[in-house]
Amino acid sequence: MTVLSTSSDGFRLHGEPFRIISGAMHYFRIHPDQWTDRLRKARLMGLNTVETYVPWNLHQPEPGTLVLDGILDLPRYLRLAQAEGLHVLLRPGPYICAEWDGGGLPSWLTTDTDIRLRTSDPRFTDALDRYLDLLLPPLLPQLAANGGPVIAVQ
């Protein structure tokens, strides 16, 4: 069964009617020591879901690398959201708005002046594929289908 689905009357989560009451909370803008507190406050405000972007430029400062520690420990943030009883809408980009320089595209990618960013240019799509190949495996346990809090990825 699909975890999150739509019907003529709205969303369904695990087959039951579900109303997404969400707010944006970008983990990379909050000190990790404050994540639990902020997630609790989000729940106490009445949210049942938080949404977060995933900034490519921070998680992959150089080609072939992946940073998932400290303020970028996204798996930990997702576990904390789940522990607080919150669902997550995950937005890994590749381009993020969020008033983020260059839309979160890594600077090493933009040094090629001929590359056509955010298109089907193979230089762009190949770099994105390599990044997602590194980013997604540690996040798979966090998907709702695997018992985690992530109910949708945009």
Rank of each mutant, 00 (worst) to 15 (best):
M1G: 14
T2W: 11
T2K: 13
L4N: 02
L4E: 07
S5N: 09
T6A: 14
T6G: 14
D9L: 12
H14W: 00
G15I: 02
P17M: 06
F18T: 05
S22C: 10
M25D: 11
Y27Q: 00
Y27M: 03
F28W: 08
T36G: 01
R38W: 10
L39Y: 01
L39Q: 07
R40V: 06
A42C: 03
R43I: 00
G46C: 09
N48L: 13
T49N: 00
E51S: 02
V54L: 07
P55N: 07
T65G: 09
T65I: 08
V67S: 12
G70N: 08
I71N: 04
D73L: 10
P75D: 08
P75K: 00
P75F: 04
Y77R: 02
Y77E: 05
L78T: 07
L78S: 06
E84L: 06
L86C: 03
H87L: 01
V88G: 01
L89A: 01
R91G: 09
P94L: 10
P94R: 12
Y95W: 11
Y95A: 06
A98L: 08
W100S: 10
D101A: 15
G103P: 12
G104E: 11
G104L: 12
P106A: 07
W108V: 07
T110C: 15
D114C: 12
R118L: 07
R118W: 06
D126V: 11
L128T: 15
L132A: 12
L132G: 04
D133Y: 13
L135M: 08
P137M: 10
P137F: 08
P137W: 07
L140C: 13
N146V: 01
I151N: 11
V153S: 04
